[in-house]
Design a binder for these strands. Sequence first.
RNA 1: GGCGCCAUCGUCUAGCGGCUAGGACACUUGGUUCUCAUCCAAGAAACAGGGGUUCGAUUCCCCUUGGCGCUACCA
Length: 488
Amino acid sequence: MKPPRVRFAPSPTGRLHIGGLRTALFNYLFTRKNGGVFILRIEDTDQKRLVPESLEDILRNLAAYGLTVDEGPRLIDGKISEVGSYGPYTQSKRLPLYRRAIDELIEQGSAYPCFCTVQRLSELRTSQEAQHLAPGYDGHCRNITPDEARRRRTAGEPCVIRFRTPKKGQTVAHDLIRGDVTFKHETLEDVVLFKTDGFPTYHLANVVDDHAMDITHVIRAEEWLPSLPLHLLLYAAFTWTPPEFAHLPLILGPTRKKLSKRDGDTAAADFLNEYVPMAMVNFISLLGWNPKTEQEYYASLDVLVKDFDLAKVNKAGAIFDVAKLKHLNRLHMRALPPEKLATLMQLECTADEAIRFLPIITEKAETFSDVRSGIAFLLAAELVYEPSLLVPKAGTREKTITVLTAFLQWLPTCGEQTWRNAEALKAETLAWVAKNSWTNSEALWPLRVALSGLAKSPDVFAIACALQKVKVLERIQRAIEHVKNLQK
RNA sequence: GGCGCCAUCGUCUAGCGGCUAGGACACUUGGUUCUCAUCCAAGAAACAGGGGUUCGAUUCCCCUUGGCGCUACCA
């Protein structure tokens, strides 16, 4: 296979969403796997829906998730610039190209001006619906002679340009994922290729650009499948060789409908706040694709690239289930060096603190929020908690004072090696507790609460070792004061 | 309504004519335990229905049903 050239072509109409991220990811994986080029093209032909910040959001997120763009707009030091020799990569800057293309189509009779007003079209639709007919353009302007059309256009009458869809025959489209799909031409409409505002529609711009940019494979979401015959017909009209097509299964919300804002967080950026980017990539890669082995954990994009294969992409849509993402995220958080994880989630702590504290917390944390709330008691300068919590359910105030005071005396006698190893500290402490004829719960519960201030916390010895001797003794001292102040 | 796509546990999926239908997540139970978890062990859980083809269908074909997508001078 010659090196593929693929593109991710979002519209800058809002924040990059999960569906878009997945499409970008599959394009990226496919082209990296085959030694090709990953192109970003901005499809901003709908001027009404433009959202100025969205381009930057798209760029930032692709970068954050590790999808490096080879050609197209890039964000460097907060400034957007384009790289690549097929530019510009923004459709609003390519208007002459589309004008030339549409003129060619009109010239050869494959497209024609349509002077129908928006009002006529909407009335047509209403009446069709009232009669339970399939809504669609009725070909009103299809047979206006070229001469008359030219006259009316020069007279300044506004018009759109429609594709003259062949009425007979059929198009058999080959999809890399779905195989051959047949569309009868009689069910196709004369769609608008060029709007009155001087911009092309998606269909025209898309085909013209994919050809101009030497795109070899169009990998996009399944929602585009119905317009595939039109695109193929356009390639034929231009006598261009079409690229290969692959239509990805949709990502669904809990109700099995196309994932949308209604389903909660759907912007790629939202997930950056809670999940390791690679965990998200890992999770999303498994939506509609799998390596046909039992592997589910992918540590990096490179490993994913090795296994990726378009032939292993499924046909059915997949529900986006956060539970699995959380599971994978836990795995990725644990695999990351603590100081890297701390930086990634912008945790306010030193590298040393990250190394000592994070491993204990990521034991059970599934999201960044879990980590933030979980690690708070370890980072706190001083613990704030309800003093009565120090006394075990079955214990007494006096006993608790005795135990904590004893710990204060005894713990410093443990060696440095012991303080570095939670298992060793546990072994020695348990032996000492037994020697004192205390039960584990009457001794360890107060100690754990003294160190954590929490009813539920990680292992007391892990906490002690992480906190280190000075801090531990300090917190026990405070705890003893708390208990002493308790009402008898 | 029309056109198109799709169909294995709750979810993501393996399976490409013969399997006790496998794995992961979630869930349940037990063990470990100073708490909550982790961890370990066990368990419950699926081939939408009906016809064919075949010695034999989860698997191939058809129909039904169901779900989804598209049906804009949006992408």
